[in-house]
Amino acid sequence: MFDPARPHRCSPQVAVRPEPFGALVYHFGTRKLSFLKTPQLVDVVSGLEQHPDVNAALAAAGVEDGQRPAYLRALAGLAANGTIEERP
């Protein structure tokens, strides 16, 4: 279960390819493509590793309060498909 209060990271099996809309994400394990649909979401995902939890990564990327629920939903989806995971 995705818990934004826990430390997370981008999966080591994932590659992030920058694109004009944000980024394309490829998971070498599941061989699935997914999309980070805004540059800010790319910042959040790549910043996860540097922050104690997801909430801090959201704040560091400057995600506004009104946008937080949408970003948390997107991140929960990324956790479910293995793009991001809890840091050991």
């Binding site: 390819r17 694109e19 004009p20 809309f21 394309l24 649909k37």
Partner: peptide
């Protein structure tokens, strides 16, 4: 803009 609309302007690398 929807993702598909972004696609019509092309990507940095092909997907397929």
């Amino acid at each position: 803009m929807k993702l598909v609309e972004h696609f019509q302007y092309g990507l940095n690398s092909p997907i397929c």
